[in-house]
């Protein structure tokens, strides 16, 4: 496993035209966000959060190859 799979939801599926992304392994969440910004200009101006192991990341967080990643738009339940 030399990549992270990132699940996509909501409008991010439309913006990135996929239900998931595969990116090279990163050491922490800041590195993931930087990689995404540089690689996917479609994300510019969009509001989204990164979730690691089903928790929204509020500050930099270390990763390993088995971390479960997801990119989430603002929630719209209810």
């Amino acid at each position: 496993m030399s990549t992270h799979k990132i699940r996509l939801f909501g409008f991010l599926v439309d913006s990135l035209k996929n239900y998931h992304l595969e990116i090279p392994l990163q050491t922490d969440s800041d590195a993931v966000l930087n990689y995404l910004k540089q690689t996917y200009p479609q994300l510019e101006g969009l509001s989204y959060s990164l979730a690691i192991n089903k928790k929204i990341v509020h500050q930099n967080h270390p990763l390993n190859a088995s971390s479960e990643l997801a990119l989430l738009p603002p929630f719209a339940g209810g």
Binding site: P74, F75, A76, G77, G78
Partner: peptide, 27 residues
């Protein structure tokens, strides 16, 4: 509970219009 669900639960909504176009709902 209602406020917590809206804030913390990753649910997304595609708002479909009558003409079959859509937009994404924001709370």
């Amino acid at each position: 509970i209602v406020e917590s669900i809206k804030e913390l639960t990753p649910i997304f909504g595609k708002e479909w219009f009558e003409n079959e176009e859509y937009t994404w709902k924001v709370n």
